[in-house]
Simulated scan of single mutants.
Amino acid sequence: MNTDVLPQGTRIGRTALRISDLEELTGFYRNIVGLSVLHRSDTTAVLGVDETPLLVLEEDADALARRVSGTGLYHNAFRVPSREALGDALGRIRDHWQLGGASDHGVSEALYLTDPEGNGIEVYRDYSRGEWPFADDGSVRISTEPLDLASIEAASAGGSQAPPGTDVGHIHLEVSSLDEFRDFYVDTLGFEVETTVPAASFVSAGGYHHHIAANTWHHRTTPSDGRGLSWFEVIVPDPGVLDAVRERFAAGEIPVTELDDGIVVTDPDSIEVRVRVESAN
Rank of each mutant, 00 (worst) to 15 (best):
R92P: 03
R18L: 10
V275F: 05
L229K: 00
A199G: 12
V265I: 14
G240V: 02
V5C: 06
D104M: 00
R11M: 10
G169E: 02
N76K: 05
Y124L: 13
Y124T: 12
A244K: 01
S128K: 14
Y74A: 13
D179G: 04
R274H: 07
E180S: 12
R14W: 10
L149H: 09
Y29D: 01
E122V: 11
S279G: 04
R94V: 07
S36A: 15
G138C: 01
R79W: 05
V49T: 13
S270H: 14
L17S: 08
N119L: 04
V49K: 09
D115W: 03
T221K: 11
E145I: 07
G165M: 06
T52W: 11
T196S: 12
T44L: 11
S103D: 13
H172E: 11
Y208W: 01
R246K: 09
S128L: 12
G240H: 09
D148C: 02
G101P: 05
Y208L: 04
T266I: 13
E122H: 00
G118P: 01
E253N: 15
D4R: 12
D243V: 02
L25Y: 01
V56Y: 08
F191P: 08
V175E: 10
F134L: 15
G158N: 12
E233S: 04
G91W: 00
V56G: 01
S156E: 05
T188K: 12
D42Q: 14
F232Q: 02
P239R: 12
R66Q: 14
A102R: 06
V5T: 15
P146M: 09
I19M: 08
S270D: 15
V80T: 13
E247G: 05
V275S: 03
D148M: 09
T71D: 13
G207V: 08
P81R: 15
G9C: 10
R30W: 08
D261M: 01
E145T: 08
N76R: 07
D148P: 00
V49Q: 11
D115N: 01
P7F: 00
R66C: 00
S177P: 10
E84A: 14
G91M: 01
A102N: 07
S177G: 11
L86R: 12
V193P: 02
W231T: 03
E59S: 14
G190L: 08
N281Y: 13
